[in-house]
Amino acid sequence: MFEARLVQSSILKKVLEAIKELLNEATFDCSDSGIQLQAMDNSHVSLVSLNLRSDGFDKYRCDRNLSMGINLASMSKIMKCAGNDDVLTMKAQDNADLVTFMFESQNQEKVMDYEMKLMNLDQEHLGIPETDYSCVIKLPSQEFARIVRDLSQFGESVVISCTKEGIKFSAGGDIGNANIKLAQTSNVDKDEDAVTIEMQEPVSLTFACRYLNSFAKATPLSPQVQLSMSADVPLVVEYKIGDIGHIRYYLAPKIED
């Protein structure tokens, strides 16, 4: 028996919005420790890694490990039926081919049950080693989304360069060039407005804008985003999900032939 209850169903709605542009379907691996998902996009250039810890749920029970293959467009249809303030409970029997999403209004006067068929998906997992990154940058997630959106107008790629002085995002194309520099903030009223840089060595890497724009769909999940970079390895873009977990995106850098 698997049962997971979230008072704020809006969290799962936002998670879905954050992954459905990159993934058509994915396997949600449920265990005693929580719900994990790891999946690459169709082109195998980026990877989504989601972790929702069991202790972050309002109620969580998972007697046996369960892998739920889910069509994300179908799940999205169901999640749209939930109000943001509804309480969500996901339920599945052991070895089930169905998962039930139950939404309850706060006053418990309306209860909705939606059953969704599960799929058998081929699982392909990558082993991602613990890495000490040369640069770890934290910045407001809305700022990151805006920068990526703005620079996407100039070209297909953005160069992210990090030094002690700050971070520079650059793009160029037919219409011209664009550079956006962010300095480390010295004092801000709110932590979520801060730009912080932990740098061992300067790094400059090139990434495809379209993936960064897809990652930015996670912006509603967290006021801050963390970018981790080292030379010649994939970028990690991480959004914390309240007290319950995180979503990480990995993106292979573009390289000169």
Binding site: M40, S43, H44, V45, S46, L47, E124, H125, L126, G127, I128, P129, S157, T206, A208, V233, P234, Y250, A252, P253, K254, I255, E256, D257
Partner: peptide, 14 residues
């Protein structure tokens, strides 16, 4: 030319 490698070029399958 600028190439776009796949993630599998960096991380092994498990």
């Amino acid at each position: 030319a600028i190439l776009q490698p796949a993630l599998g070029d960096y991380y092994g399958h498990i």
